[in-house]
Structure formats: C-alpha cells, structure tokens
Computed example of a mutant assay.
Amino acid sequence: MSKLSEQDIEKKLLQFPDWEYYDNAIHSEFEFENFKDCFSAMSRIAFECEALNHHPNWTNVYNVLTVSLSTHSENGVTEKDFKLAKAIEFIVEPEED
C-alpha cells in the first residue's frame, strides 16, 4: 500500500469532516457521555483493528478518545488509514436508519 500525496489526503478528508491531517497522520477526537461508553467504543474499534491488521495510536482520558492514523511501514497516510477511519466513524457514530 503506497503513501498518499497531501493533495489526495486533503481530498479524501472531505468525506471525514471530523478528521484533520498533520504530522504525517490523520487525527480525530471523540467525546462520549462517560468513561464506560468511551471504553466500550475502544473495545469495538480494537476488534476492527485486528481484522484489518492496522492499529492506531490512541489515547483515552476519561470520556475522550484521541486517534491518530498513519501507516508506519509507508511513513505516512495510506488507503488503509482511511479504511480504518471509516470503520471508527461507523462504530463511534452509527448512521441512523
């Protein structure tokens, strides 16, 4: 999987309004009602990460989850990062039917 250009990343980010690109990664922060809800989302995300064999840099403080995605083997952002970002978005903010 090859590293995306900055122009390609910015274009793809139009589909991810809650994400930003800086420091060679895409980043987002999610706030939950409480720690339990945040940790529950992290657990669900962890299963998706394992399935994709792609793991985020993330931190959790009480009800806030901060996520940074980049493909370390490519030293930058790839399609793999956007695939995981999409999965994270679906887990954190499922679409209403």
Rank of each mutant, 00 (worst) to 15 (best):
N75W: 04
E79Q: 15
V61C: 10
N60E: 01
L84G: 03
F47C: 01
V67K: 05
G76Q: 10
L14V: 07
D18K: 13
Q15K: 15
E6N: 14
H27W: 14
T71W: 03
W58D: 03
H72Q: 11
I45T: 00
V64R: 14
E29F: 03
I26R: 10
I45L: 04
N53E: 13
M1C: 11
L84Y: 04
D18W: 00
V77S: 00
K12P: 00
S40I: 11
D23F: 10
T71E: 03
S2F: 02
P94K: 09
V64G: 00
N53L: 03
C38A: 15
Y22M: 09
S5T: 15
E6R: 14
L14N: 12
L52A: 14
L4W: 01
L69W: 07
W19L: 07
W19D: 03
Y21M: 05
E89H: 10
E29L: 03
P94H: 11
D23E: 15
K86E: 14
E93D: 06
S40K: 12
K12Q: 14
F82M: 06
E50F: 02
S40Q: 14
D81V: 11
K36N: 12
S73D: 13
F30R: 01
N60H: 07
A51Y: 07
N34K: 02
E93L: 09
N34Q: 08
L4M: 13
K86D: 08
H55M: 07
E74C: 12
S40P: 02
S40V: 05
A41D: 08
N75L: 06
D97C: 05
F32S: 06
C38K: 02
I26P: 00
A25E: 08
A41Q: 00
E93T: 14
E96Y: 05
A51I: 10
S73T: 09
L52C: 04
L4C: 07
S40D: 13
A25C: 12
Y22G: 08
T66F: 03
E89Q: 14
S73I: 09
V64Q: 13
I88Q: 01
L69M: 07
K12R: 15
E29C: 12
P56T: 11
L13Q: 06
H27I: 05
M42E: 00
N75Y: 08
T59M: 07
I45M: 06
L84R: 06
F90V: 15
I91R: 09
N34G: 08
L4Y: 04
